[in-house]
Design a protein around this nucleic acid. Structure first.
Lengths: 231, 231
DNA sequence: TGCCCCGAGTTGTCTAGACAGGATGCCCCA
DNA sequence: TGGGGCATCCTGTCTAGACAACTCGGGGCA
């Protein structure tokens, strides 16, 4: 007749978040606290929170706690916006110049960002995109070889890295700010929220109408969250 | 280190289905059988099967068992194909003529199809869609008032029923054959598989290049399954 | 000061058992 | 022969407790 106990807990937490009482990054009461508050067993609270994870409402980190996930703007995954597509859509000529394409070892900062051990092998590329001959975007990528093994063998003057990577691994996008300092504990926790290892770090610098814009993006396979935090 | 026990059971069942050993409608071993086979508790098997339900691989019916779900063709929900959109996309003129818009009572067949009591109030509409003036589609709908209370107040010469209904309730589509006889036990079980009450029955008859096509669609809110069975 | 270790807190998983409620087939009775 | 009731099987939910693995901060040590 009445809703299951787990659904009541689920709805209670969801209501708090929807109402803005708890916002992105806030700590949700622990399972133990919710058990006591609702007078149920941990399995029941766990069921409620697992449903909220599936709905991308909260993120759970083993050993740390449960946190409110960033708001989703769209039900669907954000599509990758490719500079090549953008230029082509404007009817102009797009060219890619491969400045660098190599194996490299992860330094301390890269290791943290990519979730790999220091010194681990990464693929590294530096490409210049020209828009009707004018340099439009300089793009630098570090790619996890485990997830895109043939990266170095691609001809990026013909295939864009976007095309290859989306074909090689079903990626979803995580966007960060551009500040490239050592992440703090909070950011590391948010990095850990990803269900899988981050697999691609992209920094790019774009020239447009005399202005330069920079961006860094960190990708996770299977990760549906978008973080706006900076690191 | 190794995968959780529930994941092993999950993968075992999934593999059988993917390999075609168990096909649509087949009975999956009961929780008790899987418990014995894998030497785990029922909660563990339940977790595995619940994940498969979420992935739309199996359907579970309380009291009856677990069954292989119909194959999904797309990862995403089938989009509603609107005759109005189709005509407009071709650059032609679309007009709607409201032939009938009323309250009606469910007869025996409608009561079964809609999951309501015999005699329950339903909204009933009959609309003619014209394509550049030529009758293109005759559409007849029965709508559950509980889920679309303002149905009768809509001006369907301006707003299509599709637009209103998708706005009024988040619906997903279940498609059936058109044969309109009393459903048998198997079909009734499959109807029961829907998590919620069916809320809309649509029959339509389309004229195109001199040929007439008929279809009946049954909608459930929140139901992600597509059944191909006939009833 | 800087580093490491440890303990408290937290989530992930699992067990064995329990009760509720729907589905189904069978038997008995009219 | 037909229908109602009942036993049985099945899923849905929940409990109380347990162990594993991870995070994080603080205290001790070099």
């Amino acid at each position: 007749m009445s809703a299951p106990a787990w659904k009541k807990i689920h709805d209670h937490v969801l209501a708090k978040i929807r109402a803005g009482r708890w916002v992105e990054g806030d700590r949700v009461p622990s399972e133990a606290e919710l058990c006591e508050r609702f007078g149920v067993a941990r399995m029941t609270v766990g069921r409620a929170l697992r449903e909220l994870v599936a709905a991308q409402v909260v993120v759970r980190v083993k050993g740390a706690g449960t946190f409110v996930a960033p708001p989703r703007h769209h039900a669907t995954v954000v599509e990758i916006r490719s500079i090549a597509d953008e230029i082509a859509a404007s009817g102009r000529r797009h060219e890619t110049e491969v400045l660098l394409l190599e194996k490299s070892a992860a330094d301390a900062a890269l290791a943290v960002l990519m979730g790999v051990k220091r010194g681990a092998r990464l693929f590294h590329s530096r490409l210049l995109h020209r828009d009707d001959g004018v340099p439009r975007q300089l793009e630098e990528r570090w790619v996890n070889p485990a997830l895109a093994p043939d990266f170095l063998a691609q001809d990026f003057t013909r295939t864009t890295p976007n095309e290859y990577l989306t074909r090689a691994a079903p990626l979803e996008q995580v966007e960060y700010g551009i500040e490239a300092r050592q992440p703090d504990a909070e950011t590391r926790r948010r990095l850990a929220m990803g269900r899988d290892e981050p697999c691609l770090l992209l920094r790019r610098r774009t020239w447009s109408r005399g202005r330069v814009a920079s961006a860094a993006r960190l990708w996770h396979p299977g990760n549906r969250h978008q973080f706006t935090g900076r690191f």
